[in-house]
Write a protein that binds this DNA or RNA. Structure first.
Lengths: 213, 213
DNA sequence: ACCGGGGTGTTACCCCAGGTAACATCGTCG
DNA sequence: CGACGATGTTACCTGGGGTAACACCCCGGT
């Protein structure tokens, strides 16, 4: 049996174990699921990051292609945006554990640390950026706005999507509406509430640390 | 010396080490920085999560109070939103490592795993939700919209802020404008670009995994 | 028939990080 | 003085990532 098919089998096993235990499953567990021992995994994938990367690469394609297709749909802009949102939410709804892996991949690699967006999401953000750049007339600021918005929208959908997936407070279509409304400036357009006084807590002082900078 | 002051000293040491090495600094390193050994840390904080929690609690107050104050500012809504955005960006700009700790706290705890928003950010999201609920007239959907938007806006600012902090593509005020514009529906309002044909890649097929939930 | 290479797999080990047990010390309060 | 509550220590356990060394199996070339 040549390398490739074996690799696929191992990836399938890893998929199963992560489906069951979530990301952060141990290499031992994955090896056991595949009916083998660790060194073989390391032979095929180098290290844990290699395995995770192979795994995410496999799954990223689907989500990314779906989002890309949605972004290219010949619809009214609002409908297109809703279509993209719905595509993403449908994706994370269909296979929560898999998309948890894509979206929250257990850092591990301290190199590019501090990124809110996992690689797969960064690619989605780039896709959005490109779409905005090529479809929307934003004047001189187009590059900056498109990049900032790409990241921002992705982060927005990520956080809101996570919450929705956890608490399922409403149907998917309603959630899509809520997010599209936000992007459509409904927050800006809505009227002030008459009782605009704020009954929140009185803002504790909060201690500051010594060394800063 | 009674418990509390010692605790503060230890937290200060932990602060210093995290400032230097980022989150994920080892307990050994922190203990060494404090001039002591591990068991003492564990006596004071139980486990690593306890330490991290104590640390984040200490810092969360400042950011949270600042955001809360900004949300309560008696300004025109657009100005208030900009003020909140600026407050957050100024915070992460002033002490990157500290806010990296608040916003990307090395999961570790697999209990409530899968959350895009760290505890500190979740509290900010709640603050936004409350502000929206009490200030904006959104009709019957107000609760759902306020919650979804709170999470969404927080995630948006998190992702966009991370990117901005890393690449510093523009001034803070410009970034604030970009995000406020997004929230104000500029994406929706802008005209279509004439050349609305998409020259993106032809969407590779993408393999699907065997087991799916 | 033989041997070598590239695949399969194994056991046993290293390192390091989180976490704990057991023990020694110092100062204060009754 | 003795007890208590804090300080601190060394030495250890567990478990996960990662590796070294070794063994098998098959197939193709000489």
């Amino acid at each position: 049996m040549s390398r490739e098919p074996r690799r696929e089998q191992l990836l399938n096993a890893a998929d199963r174990v992560i489906q069951r235990e979530g990301p952060g499953a141990s290499m031992n567990a994955i090896a056991a699921e595949a009916g083998i021992t660790k060194p073989i995994l390391y032979r095929h994938f180098g290290d844990r990051n290699g395995l995770i990367k192979a795994l995410t690469d496999r799954h990223t394609g689907g989500l990314l292609a779906a989002v890309r297709a949605a972004l290219a749909e010949p619809l009214e802009r609002r409908d297109r945006v809703e279509h993209v949102l719905d595509t993403y939410l449908a994706g994370i709804e269909a296979r929560p554990q898999v998309y948890r892996l894509l979206t929250h991949p257990e850092p591990g690699d301290p190199s590019g640390a501090g990124n809110a967006l996992a690689p797969a999401l960064r690619r989605i953000a780039e896709e959005i950026t490109r779409a905005v750049q090529s479809q929307v007339d934003l004047g001189a600021d187009r590059d900056l706005l498109a990049e900032a918005w790409g990241r921002g929208i992705t982060g927005m959908v990520l956080a809101a999507g996570d919450w929705w997936l956890e608490t399922k407070p409403c149907s998917r279509t309603r959630m899509v509406q809520a997010l599209a409304d936000l992007l459509w400036g409904r927050l800006a357009a809505a009227a002030d509430l008459p009782t605009a006084v704020l009954p929140t807590a009185p803002a504790e002082p909060a201690a500051e640390p010594p060394a800063a900078g």
